[in-house]
C-alpha cells in the first residue's frame, strides 16, 4: 500500500483544532470555552493595529518614494536621450489646452501632467520631440516613448518603457532589435505589414510573427500620438 507523505498535526490543525487534539489523545486538551470578547475590545484592537500598520507604511513610503521617483526620472531621461539620438539639451513642454506651454498649469500635478520633450542640438536647433503614449496591448498597457521630427514628419526612434507582454512572444517589441530598428527614420503615419511582405515604402514597419497584437499596438500608439499632437508641434516648430 502506498504511503502518503506524513504531515504533522500542526498542518492539519488549521481545519479543526479541537477535533485534531482530541483524536490525538494524551496531548494537551482542547482549550476551555472562551468567554465572548466585547465588541468594543474587538474594534479597539483592530483599530489600533490598523493605525500602527498605517504609520509604519507611511514611514517606509517616505523613505522609498524619493528613490522610486528618482529612478523613474532617470529612466525617462535615458529614454529621451536614446530616442532623440543624444541631443545636447532637452526642453520640456507641458500640453495645456491643446497648445504647448513652457510652464504647467499652476497647481497642477507636474509629475503626471502630459508633457513632451524637445531635444536641441549644440547649435540650439531642434532635433525632434520625445513623445510618450500608452494603449492597451495584449496583456496590459504598453507605454512607449518615441522621437519625432515634426519638420520631416518622421519617427526618429522608438523605445518601450513599460509592458507586460508575453515573455518569448510579445516581449519581442522591445527585445527584438530588428523590430525596434524598423522605426528608425520611418515616415509617419506608420503602417504595419506582415514580416517580409513590405514593398520598401518608407512608412512600412515589419510586424513580428507571433506578436501581431503587440506590434500593432506600438504602431498605433505612435500614429495616434502624432495625429493628436502633430498640429501643435508644427506651430511651435516654425
Amino acid at each position: 500500500m502506498k504511503e502518503l507523505p506524513q504531515v504533522s498535526p500542526d498542518v492539519l490543525e488549521t481545519a479543526d483544532a479541537g477535533a485534531a487534539r482530541e483524536a490525538g489523545g494524551g496531548g494537551p486538551t482542547a482549550p476551555p470555552e472562551r468567554p465572548a470578547t466585547s465588541s468594543a475590545r474587538l474594534v479597539a484592537t483592530l483599530a489600533a493595529a490598523g493605525a500602527l500598520a498605517g504609520l509604519v507604511i507611511v514611514l517606509v513610503f517616505g523613505w522609498a518614494n524619493p528613490k522610486i521617483q528618482a529612478h523613474r526620472a532617470e529612466v525617462l531621461r535615458q529614454a529621451i536621450q536614446e530616442v532623440l539620438n543624444g541631443p545636447e539639451s532637452v526642453r520640456t513642454y507641458y500640453v495645456v489646452d491643446g497648445a504647448l506651454s513652457e510652464s504647467p498649469v499652476p497647481g497642477a500635478d507636474t509629475i503626471n501632467a502630459e508633457r513632451i520633450h524637445l531635444g536641441l542640438d549644440d547649435a540650439g536647433e531642434p532635433v525632434g520631440y520625445a513623445i510618450t503614449g500608452q494603449e492597451p496591448g495584449f496583456q496590459d498597457m504598453i507605454l512607449v516613448i518615441f522621437g519625432y521630427d515634426a519638420e520631416t514628419d518622421r519617427v526618429l526612434a522608438m523605445k518601450v518603457l513599460e509592458s507586460k507582454e508575453t515573455p518569448g512572444l510579445g516581449d519581442k517589441i522591445f527585445k527584438d532589435t530588428s523590430f525596434v530598428a524598423e522605426f528608425r527614420g520611418a515616415a509617419a503615419p506608420l503602417e504595419g505589414v506582415k514580416s517580409g511582405a513590405g514593398s520598401g515604402v518608407e512608412n512600412e514597419v515589419d510586424m513580428i510573427t507571433g506578436a501581431t497584437i503587440s506590434s500593432r499596438t506600438v504602431i498605433e500608439i505612435i500614429n495616434n500620438r502624432i495625429e493628436a499632437l502633430g498640429p501643435m508641434l508644427d506651430e511651435s516648430g516654425s
Binding site: V60, A64, K67, I68
Partner: peptide, 10 residues
C-alpha cells in the same frame, strides 16, 4: 507593502 516599496526603491 513594506517589501513592495523596498523592492521598488532598491
Amino acid at each position: 507593502t513594506i517589501a513592495d516599496l523596498v523592492l521598488a526603491a532598491v
